[in-house]
Design a protein around this nucleic acid. Structure first.
Length: 112
DNA sequence: TTTCTCACA
DNA sequence: TGTGAGTA
């Protein structure tokens, strides 16, 4: 995992901040968590700590609910997105490996 | 300020 | 799907 991803996944935001960021009520945020749409970490005293990714996720949830999707539908959508992201990550890694191979070959024939 | 749960639309 | 109240 890159340092950039680490920061994105750093769960530090208290619910009050997330509430303002997403324009949702804290009640709604907990409601979505109950239905498995988000998984915030817990910090001191069992208080939720949200990451930037969670905020992003919440904004997505809001859009989908507005579009008339149920929490169950949205959960499935997220799972599909996660699979897709993992897939493209894999192909990206494969591409990097093959490129590295190519560069290694070129390096062996490097004419100086 | 935040947590949780229950009852209620 | 979402809220209000009561609690710790």
């Amino acid at each position: 995992m890159s340092g950039r991803e680490l920061r994105r996944n750093l769960a530090i935001l208290p619910i009050g901040t997330v509430r303002e960021l997403t324009l949702l009520t804290d009640r709604q945020i907990r409601y979505y968590e109950q239905h498995g749409l988000i998984s915030p970490k817990r910090g001191d005293g069992g208080q939720r700590r949200f990451s930037l990714n969670d905020v992003d996720q919440l904004l997505n949830i809001k859009d989908h609910l507005d579009a008339g999707d149920s929490t169950k539908d949205i959960k499935e959508i997220f799972e599909k997105q996660a699979r897709k992201a993992q897939q493209s990550k894999n192909t990206d890694q494969a591409l990097r490996r093959s490129l590295q191979d190519e560069f290694a070959k070129i390096g062996r024939f490097d004419v100086r």
